[in-house]
Simulated assay, not measured.
Amino acid sequence: MIKKLPLALLILFASLSGCAKDYSLAPPPDSEQITVTVKVPKDLVAETLQVMYRSATCKRITHGASGQRIELEGYHSIDVQLQRQGQSDLYQANLAMSGGGACQWHLSNVIFGVAYGNPTRFGENVSYGAGGGVVVVFDQNNSPRGGTGIEVDGDLTIRKEYYPWVTETFLGGYSKRVSLAGEGNIYLSYQALQARQVYFEPVLHSEFAVYSVQPKEKKKGNHTAFTYPDGSVVADGRSDPDFRKLQAIRLAAESKK
């Protein structure tokens, strides 16, 4: 009968030791909670939380370059939807720190963020790109995005500014996407070992969009051209917008009002 099992199941049984019987989550009723809150501005939507639990009881078996057996903590990932709080712009989810079960799961990290709700406002067939993401690690393990991020004491409050970034690419096939240009990488990463409250407030400056057009031919000297909200065009080899320039343009425009 084992030979007839799908390969994915065989891998699962082989990779989790000590809890093949029941590796499901079963948070105890009295488990301490972590609350994740996202303040969602107009034009954006809250993305689904990707929540990871880990277990030192249910090991994950892998092998090194020379074939040696390596035991790692097992992991269990689930998706959680943020729930709108009344008619406000706050969306919230409560996560149990203890996942319980036979594997004695513990909360390891969460990935969440915001995205454009209606990308087609920037044109037909425009899709959402990237940006506006957050990774929070609650233990000593690296996140699926790599590393543990900036260390934070106590609860975590994040307030970041973003600008619409509309990109047109041609190499490898045409696409047009709108992303969120902010300070730093696509995902902001933090390690918050003591946090019980995680609050994220993205501030979107919709009227200060930046546009970029990729060269149609890969050739020395060809660079992506960025058109900033003030009309200036820059093609200096950058792969993403100059956030400081965007800030300066917006602040100068607002000071004239």
Rank of each mutant, 00 (worst) to 15 (best):
I2S: 11
L7E: 13
A8V: 14
A14I: 00
S15A: 14
S15W: 07
L16R: 15
S17H: 08
K21S: 15
Y23P: 09
L25G: 03
A26N: 11
P27I: 11
P29T: 12
E32M: 11
I34P: 06
T35C: 11
T37W: 00
V38Q: 08
K39H: 14
L44Y: 01
A46Q: 09
R54P: 04
R54S: 11
A56I: 05
A56K: 14
T57C: 03
C58W: 03
C58G: 10
K59W: 04
R60C: 02
R60L: 10
T62P: 00
H63M: 04
G64A: 07
G64N: 07
A65S: 13
G67M: 09
G67S: 11
E71P: 12
Y75T: 06
H76K: 13
S77E: 11
I78N: 02
Q81N: 14
L82I: 04
L82C: 04
R84K: 15
Q85I: 14
G86C: 10
G86P: 09
S88I: 08
L90F: 10
L90P: 07
Q92S: 12
A93Q: 11
A102V: 15
A102G: 12
C103Q: 04
L107R: 02
S108F: 01
S108L: 02
V110E: 01
I111T: 10
F112H: 10
A115M: 13
T120W: 08
R121S: 02
F122W: 12
F122Q: 02
F122V: 02
F122L: 00
S127W: 15
S127V: 15
G129R: 02
A130P: 00
G131D: 08
G131L: 13
G132W: 05
G133P: 01
G133C: 10
V134K: 03
V136D: 01
V137D: 05
F138S: 01
Q140W: 12
G146V: 06
G147K: 11
E151A: 14
D153L: 13
G154Y: 11
D155N: 14
T157S: 15
I158G: 05
K160M: 08
E161P: 05
Y162G: 00
Y163A: 06
P164G: 08
W165R: 04
V166E: 03
V166P: 07
T167P: 00
E168G: 01
E168W: 07
G172Q: 12
G173V: 10
A181F: 01
N185H: 11
N185S: 14
Y187T: 03
L188I: 03
A192F: 09
L193N: 11
A195E: 10
R196F: 07
F200V: 12
P202G: 06
V203H: 03
F208K: 10
S212Q: 06
Q214P: 05
E217Y: 11
K219Y: 07
K219F: 09
K220C: 00
H223C: 05
A225C: 07
A225V: 13
D230I: 09
G231C: 09
S232Q: 14
S239D: 09
D240M: 12
D240N: 13
D242F: 01
F243G: 01
K245C: 02
L246F: 03
A248T: 13
L251E: 15
